[in-house]
């Protein structure tokens, strides 16, 4: 599958590396060239430097023909603008957006844009550690 990842912070780089290692064709976009170094030497995918909401940058990343697009920067307003660009300028609706502040979930729901709800994922993780253990071998 062809996947475009926008935002190469720690999370974006991890997602990109993992999907590339699974054999997907991954393209990573970030405004800062040094951020792309997080992908490591072994990364075989493509990279594009520039703002993820810029039409020319998205064109170069070939979002229109991607099977999936993930918007993963740590800034909610930036993610929102990138998602608008991917949807409105390229007609791609299969875009998943990282949400850092749960306040914005309602807007994405209203617009029908799928999200990765980061605080909720963390909450889930913490909850699991609180749940009574089912493993009889462990105390």
């Amino acid at each position: 599958m062809r996947i475009v990842i926008i935002g190469c912070g720690r999370i974006g780089a991890h997602v990109a590396r993992s999907l590339a290692a699974e054999g997907h064709d991954v393209c990573v976009v970030d405004t800062e060239a040094p951020s792309l170094a997080r992908l490591g030497e072994a990364f075989r995918g493509r990279t594009v430097v520039g703002p993820g909401f810029d039409e020319a940058v998205l064109l170069e990343a070939e979002v229109a023909s991607a099977d999936a697009v993930a918007v993963l920067t740590n800034a909610d307003a930036t993610n929102f603008m990138i998602a608008r660009a991917v949807i409105e300028l390229f007609g791609v609706h299969d875009v998943r957006v990282r949400v850092n502040d749960p306040e914005f979930l309602a807007l994405y729901a209203e617009l029908g844009v799928p999200t990765v709800d980061l605080p909720d994922l963390v909450l889930d993780g913490v909850r699991q550690s609180l749940a009574p253990r089912r493993d009889p071998d462990r105390p």
């Binding site: 909610d76 930036t78 929102f80 603008m81 807007l107 617009l111």
Partner: peptide, 9 residues
């Protein structure tokens, strides 16, 4: 600009 777009939406 990202903030302005988000606020308007």
């Amino acid at each position: 600009d990202a903030a302005n777009l988000l606020i308007a939406m």
